[in-house]
Design a protein around this nucleic acid. Structure first.
Lengths: 222, 222
DNA sequence: CTAATTCTTCAACTTCTCTTCAAATTCACA
DNA sequence: TGTGAATTTGAAGAGAAGTTGAAGAATTAG
């Protein structure tokens, strides 16, 4: 479970992070507006702790951006300003919960657990990458909201790509993932399935997500 | 895990070192400005404890130099001067945390653990050398933030250089690393790959990292 | 059981990398 | 400063890696 902590008080965020680490959460820290945007863009988090009163840009702005990118699931607002106004505004923008400072780390942890539970529950098992979404429950893949039809192998391949986005994946790894450990020899399957997947993504308007890295494998990125 | 302690009070640094040794950290000590620079240049540390109030040069100066060399990840400032000013300046320069004296060794240890965890987590397994970074997951190499495209052999060669930076590497060792043990005879491959790597690094603005040591091999340094 | 779909195999083709080689240059040492 | 050895360089062919289309095998659906 990955958590992003957007908080400018370093001592606080460090202690949150070290506490959450004991609960098996992996934390990323962002201490200002631009850092936060950066992390949000490059990684997906199971939960985002957002301090509203952030220097260099308002925390609510971040929430808006998350909302626009369909990533506002799992946001827990923390704030010293315990004003009703902030709270309402935050929840309206799609935050899942609101926790006024100061708080006990155990309460924070409980709320995070609740948010993640909820998120994984309501059919939100969506894996996303830009305008591409994969619903791992219904197994429906959409590009720009329009569904595309994939075969089973193509679906598994795409899911593997998206969940390892921006990493170079060796053909060996792909072979092991799709066919199990005993896939010595030829990569002809892979070539063909990649060709077909590229074709279908291309037809749907999103070519070029799957890059070949000569001699190394493939990389799914933008 | 390697830790550098930059601290002029010998008793303090000794007791920190011996405590951290019990936690499986290996500590190096530097008790003044020049010693610190020396250690920083020759070795990479997982965490650096930096006393701001250092004789013979300000500790913040060291932080600046670390920052310039892209080594400011993992710096924990310790200081008796518990002024807000120092703190802000330190954190602006990229330190990860700030611990005012006096402190409990257990707290120090907890913060170090947090810093190392953070560093390994959001560092994406980055190998760095000055303005050069190698992301070993995405296999992307950047010079001054701009990505450069390398072939597989070039990438492996560069990675070998960077992980053996500032050491003289024999062509035999390079050959064994890149092609396995059975590479008797000619070094023509190496010459060519080094030429190409130099070209690409040069085009990206960083020539001269790869030095030839006549009759011995090569050295990657600045 | 048949038809349709999907998966795998194969071969021709394209693209990019690696290696080879010879000529030019640099270096250490006498 | 001259000499042989070490290194650099550019060019080009060999070779590996990746792409593509087509067709047979396997699987699934009706």
């Amino acid at each position: 479970m990955k958590i992003l902590i957007i908080e400018d008080e370093k001592e606080l965020s460090a202690s949150i992070a070290s506490y959450l680490a004991t609960q098996e959460y992996a934390c990323d820290l962002a201490e200002n507006f631009s850092e936060a945007l950066d992390k949000i863009e490059t990684l997906d988090y199971d939960c985002i702790l957002l301090d509203i009163s952030l220097p260099g840009g308002n925390g609510l702005k971040i929430l808006e951006i998350l909302k626009q990118n369909n990533k506002s699931d799992g946001v827990l607002i923390i704030s010293a300003k315990n004003s009703l106004d902030d709270k309402i505004q935050g929840l309206n923008l799609g935050a899942d919960d609101y926790l006024p400072k100061p708080f006990h780390l155990s309460e924070l942890s409980a709320r995070i657990a609740a948010i993640i539970r909820r998120k994984n529950f309501d059919g939100h098992s969506l894996v996303k990458f830009h305008n591409l979404t994969i619903d791992t429950q219904s197994k429906v893949v959409t590009v720009n909201e329009a569904p595309i039809v994939l075969t089973k192998k193509e679906y598994e391949l795409l899911l593997y790509f998206v969940s390892n986005k921006r990493k170079v994946i060796s053909k060996d790894a792909i072979a092991r993932y799709l066919w199990g450990d005993d896939m010595a020899g030829s990569f002809d399957f892979i070539y063909t399935h990649i060709k077909n997947l590229r074709k279908k993504l291309g037809d749907a308007g999103e070519a070029d997500y799957i890059k070949s890295i000569y001699g190394m494998g493939y990389k799914f990125s933008d």
